[in-house]
């Protein structure tokens, strides 16, 4: 399978700050890739390098096999970008903005655009300067989605959108995926990433600390097992890969990061009333990386 995005050893240094540290990244065609990381992790930096807006300090980035820095125009013919903040032309109305961006892009799916305008409830006769921030964000989104570009690069596209519009956005990304478009989605909204993305990468201080499908990430991370006993919980003693904490008068909570067998064996003679096991939420995986990330564990 050919890749929509390919980065090799991609690094960017701003003065003393190493904003991106030797990133290796592959996003396959047709994939929806979630890009996560705390503030200042280097997500926007990555995107600027993918767009050829900033010059890599080392390494290279390719979009559909086209070098992002050397030949940005060819690369941009195949992608559409939604910036984290909507920087548009204040004196143009939305309709004029769509027309302008479509002309520069070399065309847009006008029928789909009308559908999106309807879906996102945009007043296209209003000048951009009179639009609220969320509405300006929607103008960007509609322009990008209507371009039907092979790759959508979205940097926190839903910041400022209300929940209804968030649903409209998800629907649109699903449609893009169905059409075989690739989506690179940088986001802080974990439920959104969980709902949309096939694969997730977690960035921390310029390094990719974890990557994989959501399922794979879950398997690699700790399960939470909660056990309720008839009366006073037993001493479980030290168990490899299990962290035990008290969770009330008659309950224990265990964080199991390896196989669950040893814990089950240790419970064999205990009088267990109830046992629940659940996979970690993306939020827990995420927080785990943010807290312990400096060790670089994956």
């Amino acid at each position: 399978m050919s890749s929509a995005i390919q980065a090799e050893g991609l690094s960017k240094r701003y003065g003393d700050t190493l904003a991106l540290d030797s990133l290796d990244l592959t996003v396959a065609e047709g994939e929806v890739y979630g890009y996560l990381g705390p503030n200042g992790a280097g997500k926007t930096t990555t995107i600027r390098l993918l767009l050829g807006l900033h010059r890599p300090s080392a390494g290279r980035a390719e979009v559909f096999g086209i070098d992002a820095w050397r030949d940005p125009v060819s690369a941009h013919r195949r992608l559409a970008y939604v910036a984290g903040e909507p920087f548009l032309w204040p004196a143009l109305t939305s309709a004029e903005t769509f027309e302008f961006m479509a002309t520069l892009h070399g065309g847009a799916d006008v029928i789909y655009r009308d559908l999106l305008i309807e879906r996102f409830k945009l007043d296209t006769e209003k000048k951009v300067r009179a639009l609220s921030k969320g509405n300006r964000q929607k103008v960007q989104l509609v322009a990008a989605l209507a371009s039907r570009a092979d790759l959508l690069i979205l940097d926190e596209p839903t910041s400022g959108l209300d929940p209804l519009m968030e649903m409209a956005f998800r629907e649109s990304v699903h449609e893009a995926k169905e059409r075989g478009q690739t989506v690179f989605l940088s986001s802080h909204i974990l439920s959104e990433v969980e709902a949309l993305c096939d694969r997730v990468g977690i960035l921390r201080e310029g390094r990719l600390v974890d990557e994989g499908t959501l399922d794979a990430l879950r398997h690699l991370s700790a399960h939470t097992v909660e056990i309720t006993f008839e009366d006073e919980p037993p001493e479980l003693g030290p168990l490899a890969g299990v962290e035990v904490t008290r969770a009330g008068a008659r309950a224990l909570r265990c964080e199991v990061s390896g196989p669950i067998g040893p814990l089950i064996a240790a419970l064999a003679n205990a009088r267990v009333v109830a046992l629940t096991s659940r996979e970690p939420s993306l939020e827990e995986i995420f927080l785990h990386h943010y807290d312990h990330g400096s060790s670089g564990s994956g």
């Binding site: 767009l51 807006l53 940005p72 125009v73 970008y81 920087f87 520069l104």
Partner: peptide, 15 residues
């Protein structure tokens, strides 16, 4: 500085 250039250059517009 208003970052409209970034919007423009992320379209197929050459520098």
């Amino acid at each position: 500085s208003d970052q409209r250039l970034e919007t423009l250059l992320s379209l197929p517009v050459g520098r």
